[in-house]
């Protein structure tokens, strides 16, 4: 464990807490894409298959349980909770996210570290996570006024993977093992997808104006 990875995990945890806070306290999911939340639930479900069979550390197991629990409960809130679901604008959240899953699965079957079920699932979860934010970014461009919590949520979600890239660089220079290039590339693509959001987020913060993404 290094400071970059810890910062990444804490940023990721914080993004999830900000979202849960928004949904649980003000009982609203306005501006949040259910499709992205569903994709993230699938990302964690396919990545943490070995949560009970492959013990890494208490921290690792607890964080996996938090990410699994929070992502599925957010999906539950947005689908089932009688108040929260009313604030979900489904006619705006129209990204065909299932169409994202098939190319990721096919790519995982072709490009992976080891052709085993678990390894293919893990690779699938990496590719899927790289594109999981797309429905949310599309929704942000459609909903004009982005509220602060939603903007912070997306910002933190993007920032965590950027910290992971620093972690991979650090590990490359300090450990005899190396992190596989599949992880590097999908992490890089994921972070680059946030580039324009980061730009507008920084502009809105610098000029102290409401965050707006060009349509």
């Amino acid at each position: 464990m290094n400071i970059f990875r810890l910062a990444g995990d804490m940023t990721h945890l914080f993004s999830v807490l900000v979202l849960l806070l928004k949904i649980h306290t003000i009982k609203s999911c306005a501006g949040i894409s259910l499709k992205t939340q569903e994709l993230y639930a699938i990302v964690f479900a396919t990545r943490y298959l070995d949560i009970f069979t492959n013990y890494i550390s208490l921290y690792n197991t607890i964080m996996k349980l938090i990410f699994l629990g929070s992502s599925f409960s957010i999906v539950w809130y947005m689908r089932r909770h009688k108040i929260v679901r009313r604030s979900y604008d489904k006619d705006q959240d129209t990204f065909r996210h299932y169409f994202l899953m098939l190319p990721c699965l096919i790519l995982a079957l072709i490009i992976n570290e080891k052709f085993t079920f678990r390894e293919v699932m893990w690779t699938f979860s990496l590719y899927l996570e790289a594109v999981a934010i797309l429905p949310q970014l599309v929704l942000l461009q459609r909903t004009r006024n982005i509220d602060n919590l939603t903007g912070q949520y997306v910002f933190l979600l993007g920032a965590y993977r950027a910290f992971y890239i620093l972690n991979w660089i650090y590990r490359y220079f300090t450990e005899e093992h190396f992190v596989h290039w599949i992880t590097w590339i999908s992490g890089l693509v994921q972070t680059l997808l946030y580039a324009d959001f980061f730009y507008y987020y920084f502009q809105s913060w610098k000029n102290n104006v409401k965050l707006e993404l060009p349509a």
Partner: peptide
């Protein structure tokens, strides 16, 4: 450098 034994990251 050799391959990591397992996925130790989240």
């Amino acid at each position: 450098k050799e391959q990591p034994l397992e996925h130790d990251e989240l």
